[in-house]
Design a protein around this nucleic acid. Structure first.
Lengths: 227, 227
DNA sequence: CGGCCAGCGTGACTTCTGTCACTGCTCCCC
DNA sequence: GGGGAGCAGTGACAGAAGTCACGCTGGCCG
């Protein structure tokens, strides 16, 4: 049953997990499941927002594109997360674009339905505020990094974060330098050069697509000294 | 009557303007009016959020500080605006600091009260989402500028925005170069140099603290060519 | 009136950034 | 096995960004 599957999905989302069965059914009836092949655009910067997406499977990359074609990734959202929450309130345009990093299924909820739900179930609004708040925090963090630090610093931060995420000192670089560059707000060449330099300085070791942190304290110290 | 004055104030805010008299009274009873002299800190980056501020008079400057002391202004909010909306949802920390740019009065609402209000009056949540959404848009805009453009570009954008705001080609620079630098994410010296250069190139004319746009199209063209 | 101080303008540098161009490498598909 | 396509490393630059150091000015206060 399509509807039952959707309800299962909805239960796992931060936004709607707390709704009761009846609400859930109503919501599922309104939501449309869409499938996007890898690389497909879900929504485009500048387009008018029509609704919100809930990622079911796959991952969605939220990014800005410059007029020269450079990209800056603002966030990557996986299953259970919502994307493009803005439309609930104003009917403005999407501030960034979203694309599927792999084959992705997403539920689409129109702003009209969502708005109605918010008015009926105030908890949903609060959850939404929570999600948007987290997003706001992340954006402020990005601004801080861009405004006050160098590419090297951002790269080190990224490496440390990634290692922490994996739980060990060694982790696999799962993306191309190009993509990593888009994450930390620079270009491919600088990622390449800075990685090489960190390796030459004995802070990290690289083996194919694997990065090992050799001297974590050194990296930390480097971060501190650059500030 | 203090309470009546507060109600007058609340009526003019985006957030609570639509509430009825009863609600308004309740809210006013809960809110605390605080006064801050010029330069005083309302809240500090990293402190745990306890509530939201409504600016009554004066202006509040929202900014990030780097460890070297550089600052980046994220927003300036005047009467009727709310500041630090985050606490409604999570009890996390303030992502940035807020200070009074001049003598400022602000109403403080605790997160508990606000949360209760949101649950009771879903419209308030929607308004909040609208405000937070606008903030989100602005932050994404800042990231875009920082990530893709130069100081010169940001300065030109700022000048064009400022002129538009004033409605004429001439407007007064109401802040020091230092402060302007904090707005566009750079340092004093670069503001000074770039202003001089724009003047030398005949795009703008400066007379004391007054800036006149001489060649708006030239500026626009410059923006376009840099991208 | 003299001194002080914040704010501005600038020169001299250093370091960072981003671009271009070219070279390999590897994987994949005919 | 032979091309390609896509990614990665690197040298060479040009221009931008930020730092330091100074000198100047105008306003304010004692």
């Amino acid at each position: 049953m399509e509807a039952n599957r959707q309800i299962e999905i909805l239960k796992k989302t931060q936004l709607f997990g707390a709704l009761d069965e009846t609400e859930m059914r109503l919501l599922a009836a309104r939501a449309g499941l869409r499938t996007y092949p890898q690389g497909e655009i879900l929504f485009c910067e500048g387009e008018s927002c029509q609704g919100l997406f809930i990622v079911v499977t796959g991952r969605v990359r939220i990014f800005k594109t410059s007029s020269t074609g450079r990209e800056h990734v603002l966030a990557v959202e996986g299953p259970g997360a919502s994307v493009a929450e803005l439309p609930v309130f104003d009917g403005g345009v999407y501030p960034a674009s979203g694309s599927a990093m792999e084959k992705t299924e997403a539920l689409f909820l129109s702003r009209i339905d969502l708005r109605a739900l918010c008015l009926e179930k105030p908890e949903v609004s609060l959850k939404l505020l929570q999600v948007v708040g987290a997003r706001l925090r992340r954006l402020v963090g990005i601004i801080e990094e861009l405004s006050f630090t160098t590419v090297r610093h951002r790269l080190i931060s990224w490496i440390l974060r990634e290692a922490k995420k994996s739980g060990t000192a060694t982790f696999a670089l799962q993306m191309s330098h190009q993509e990593l560059a888009a994450h930390i707000g620079t270009v491919r060449e600088l990622v390449s050069r800075n990685l090489t330099r960190l390796q030459a300085q004995g802070f990290i070791a690289m083996n194919g697509r694997e990065i090992t942190i050799v001297d974590e304290e050194g990296l930390q110290a480097d971060l501190a000294s650059m500030m």
